[in-house]
Write a protein that binds this DNA or RNA. Structure first.
Length: 200
DNA sequence: TTCCCGATTTACT
DNA sequence: GTAAATCGGGAAA
C-alpha cells in the first residue's frame, strides 16, 4: 500500500485530481481506531474563479486559509452547524483549489463506523454523503489542515477509472453559485451503490 | 458585536 | 415530499 505522493495533489488541474481520486482509498486513524474505504464520489472546487468555492475571488479569511495551502492537506469545514465536510486541498500554495469527498465505500473498521453512526447494520447510506462520511470516519475540525502524508488521515493508491466509468454531473447544494452551479464538477463511479443521491 | 445564511441530514406529515 | 435542526463564518454596522 502506498500513499499518494505530494506531486499528485499539486497538479494544476483540480478537476483532473477529483477524477483521479475516485477509486483511491481514504483512511483515518482516530485514537488508534482505523477506518476507511474507497472513494466513490468527489466534487471539484476551482478556487478563485469558482463562485461555489469559499475562496471565490481570492477571498482569504480565517476559514479559507487552509485552501490556500499547498496541495496535500485536508480542509474540514463545519456546515449547517452539524455536519463536517472533508476536502482535499490541491494545487500549489496560494491557489485555493480543493476536492470535496462526497462518498466512500466502507472497507476498514466497519464496526467503528456503525457505532459512530449509531446504526446496527451496514447500509449504503452509512458513508454516502459528505456529512455522513465524515461522521463514520470520525472526522471533525480537529482534522482540519492535516498533512495527508501523516498518520491521522491519508489516502492510498488503489484503482483508477477511465472516463467512461466516471459520471460527470452538476454539483449538489450549491444553487447559490448561480451559473457556476451548472458546472459539471461532480464525479462518481458509474453503478456504485455508495453514492449520495440528489435530495428529491 | 450582531445578524443572516449555508458545499446537509434526518425525521415526520 | 417537506421542514426543522443548529452553530461558526463572513459581512455589515
Amino acid at each position: 500500500m502506498s500513499k499518494l505522493s505530494l506531486a499528485f495533489y499539486q497538479q494544476e488541474d483540480v478537476v483532473s485530481v477529483a477524477k483521479q481520486l475516485l477509486g483511491k482509498k481514504l483512511f483515518t486513524n482516530i485514537n488508534g481506531i482505523v477506518t476507511g474505504g474507497i472513494i466513490t464520489e468527489t466534487e471539484a472546487y476551482d478556487g478563485a474563479i469558482d463562485k461555489a468555492c469559499h475562496a471565490y475571488g481570492g477571498k482569504y479569511t480565517n476559514r479559507t486559509a487552509t485552501m490556500f495551502l499547498k496541495g496535500g492537506v485536508t480542509y474540514v469545514y463545519l456546515c449547517y452547524g452539524i455536519h463536517h465536510l472533508l476536502n482535499v486541498v490541491s494545487g500549489k500554495e496560494g491557489n485555493p483549489q480543493a476536492v470535496l469527498i462526497r462518498a466512500i465505500e466502507p472497507v476498514v473498521g466497519l464496526e467503528a463506523m456503525l457505532q459512530r453512526r449509531k446504526m446496527d447494520k451496514l447500509a449504503p447510506r452509512i458513508t454516502a454523503g459528505p456529512g455522513a462520511l465524515s461522521q463514520a470516519l470520525g472526522i471533525d475540525k480537529q482534522l482540519n489542515a492535516k498533512d495527508l502524508s501523516a498518520n491521522e488521515i491519508w489516502i492510498e493508491d488503489f484503482e483508477s477509472y477511465n472516463d467512461d466509468q466516471i459520471v460527470a454531473t452538476t454539483r449538489i447544494g450549491v444553487a447559490y453559485a448561480e451559473e457556476h452551479a451548472l458546472w459539471p464538477f461532480r464525479f462518481y463511479v458509474k453503478g456504485n451503490k455508495f453514492v449520495s443521491k440528489p435530495s428529491s
